[in-house]
């Protein structure tokens, strides 16, 4: 906390914080207000006498209704949920096991393997989708949810592995040694001791993986084509921007509704993932 006179606190703490918050939250506010603003106000020229960009006196649910009635938004939501959940589960299982192995089992080249896995995470998706689309086509998975469930782990597993590796390294080695002396096999020690202790880390890896796949755009754009298979980010953009016409109301409504599940997931686990990121294990 800033010491000294009240004006110092305002100048060095409250005002910068407020500016930062405004900068950060304004896009969300804009999304919210546009969702509920009637079309008449949305397309009103800025020179008009009754131009009120930051507020509306006639809130409406028309855009949301449009979204559900005229587009397949509900299907997109379901698709996104299914794909994100499935790919998160796959990535978490692989990431936890790989992270444990890299952190705990002393095998040759463990260090360079860990670095290698991290490097695969750095390969941009904008490059990777080219060979992947070839693979998806060969396995005839194009335009199915599996095209994404199986390709999202290509960036989620390195991410989860790396995060879990760091977390497992922070868990005292003695816990596991003690369990082994107590009569647990390595597998049991991992299952009963190490994984329960690492739950905060697993939760934060899960939340991040879920968010990454929820928001993913490029693979979904490339691998899915029919409207009933699309995910929210792709569906909203491809169905609500027609040519050079932007349907701003439904677009923003879609963005708003699309971000709610992620926000819920975050707020639900917020305590866990903070402690997961700071890696605190108390004995």
């Amino acid at each position: 906390m800033i010491e000294g006179a009240i004006w110092r606190r305002w100048v060095f703490f409250y005002i910068p914080l407020a500016l930062f918050l405004i900068f950060l939250l304004f896009p969300f506010y804009w999304m919210l207000i546009t969702t509920f603003r009637p079309d008449g106000e949305l397309y009103r020229p800025w020179r008009a006498a009754n131009y009120t960009p930051f507020w509306t006196w006639n809130p409406t649910l028309d855009h949301i209704k449009y979204l559900f009635r005229e587009t397949m938004f509900a299907t997109w939501l379901w698709n996104t949920m299914f794909i994100a959940t499935a790919s998160t589960i796959i990535s978490l299982i692989c990431g936890v096991l790989a992270g444990y192995a890299l952190a705990r089992l002393n095998f040759p080249f463990a260090g360079s393997l860990g670095t290698g896995i991290f490097i695969t995470y750095l390969v941009p998706q904008t490059l990777l989708f080219i060979p992947l689309s070839e693979i998806i086509r060969n396995y005839k998975l194009g335009d199915t949810p599996w095209s994404l469930i199986l390709t999202y782990p290509t960036f989620l597993i390195p991410f989860c592995t790396w995060l879990m590796m760091g977390y497992f390294k922070a868990v005292p080695k003695e816990l596991e040694e003690c369990a082994r002396i107590d009569g647990a096999s390595r597998w049991q020690a991992m299952l009963y001791i190490i994984i329960p202790v690492a739950i905060p880390g697993i939760l934060s890896a899960g939340i991040f993986a879920f968010t990454l796949s929820w928001n993913e755009f490029i693979y979904a754009l490339v691998f899915l084509s029919s409207p009933e298979q699309k995910t929210v980010p792709v569906g909203v953009v491809s169905e609500l921007i027609r040519g050079d016409v932007f349907f701003w109301g439904p677009l923003m409504a879609g963005a708003l509704l699309g971000s709610i599940p992620v926000a819920i997931a975050y707020s639900f686990f917020v305590e866990h993932y903070v402690s997961g990121l700071t890696g605190s294990v108390k004995g």
Binding site: E174, L175, E177, C178, R180, I181, D182, V197, K282, G283
Partner: peptide, 18 residues
């Protein structure tokens, strides 16, 4: 270790926190 019929006490106690 499990088959040696020993028990060990560690410096940091190594209690299972959960």
């Amino acid at each position: 270790p499990m088959d040696r019929d020993i028990a060990m006490v560690f410096q940091n106690y190594a209690l299972y926190p959960h």
